[in-house]
Amino acid sequence: MSEDSTRSAGQAPLDLPEGCTLSRRTFLGGVGATAGLVLAGAVPALVSSAQATEGGVPGNESLSGVLEEDGAVNYPGKTVHYAEPPGDEKWAMVIDVKACIGCRRCVYACVKENNIGRNSGFTYIQVLEMDKGKVDVEHASLAYEQGGDPDKWYMPVQCMQCAKPPCVYGCPVTATWRDPDGIVVIDYEKCIACRNCIVTCPYGARHFNWVEPEVAEAEINPDVPLHEKAGVIEKCTFCIHRTREGGTTACTEACPVGARKFGDLNDPDSEVSILLKTRRVWRLKEEYGTEPMIWYVG
């Protein structure tokens, strides 16, 4: 019966090779999977209405696997001195690589916002230009001239604020830790400049100030340390001085195509929560088990 139905469904051109036709098994499998997906969507919904207060954030149960990764790592009990204390938020970012045009405006905005030494020779955000067809970081280009090449695609990489941060595990003196809201911070007064975190980070997100960072007097952002950063490690902080006061990150603000969404995973109605629940997202080097807090969607 189903043999007949497939044949009648696929009546039209049929230039396809043998293996391409919809066999009974795959057809039935497909039906089963669809039903499963529907059920999977329905059951948690029922459960959530029944016991909304128990376990996880109400309305965000489908993200519980991600939310469980939360938990401060090596948190010394006091937050960094230049920002408001962390609240109940759990910060996350979703980057739409389909939208990203590789213009590097996020990079420039970040450099200005975070007092990155103009002579330091690094930026928190690195945009990789890659060939179509695969996520091949090994053959990506960082030094491309300008973005917007239709034959390429672009992926910005920065500190992933990992839930299991190898850099924090590798710091011999506990000069870096993960604050309760998920931001991995560095104590510039304590860093011994061993650079082991540069070695342990799989995302190349950590940078060392080999020189005294220089920023023109007029361009200094008073909310962010500058001279303290000489001879120590620095990296992206999810703009901790802005986000903990209700703002968003400088890179999110600067993106001309709205490819970056920043928000709180503990808020079920935030853009990042909705994106994670509705879109098929992926993370860079997921197999490393670092549980990054930046997701990509294409």
Binding site: C171, V173, T174, I192
Partner: peptide
Amino acid sequence: WMLLTPNFNSP
């Protein structure tokens, strides 16, 4: 600091 606040995850 290696003596005062050592992190035993670090080789």
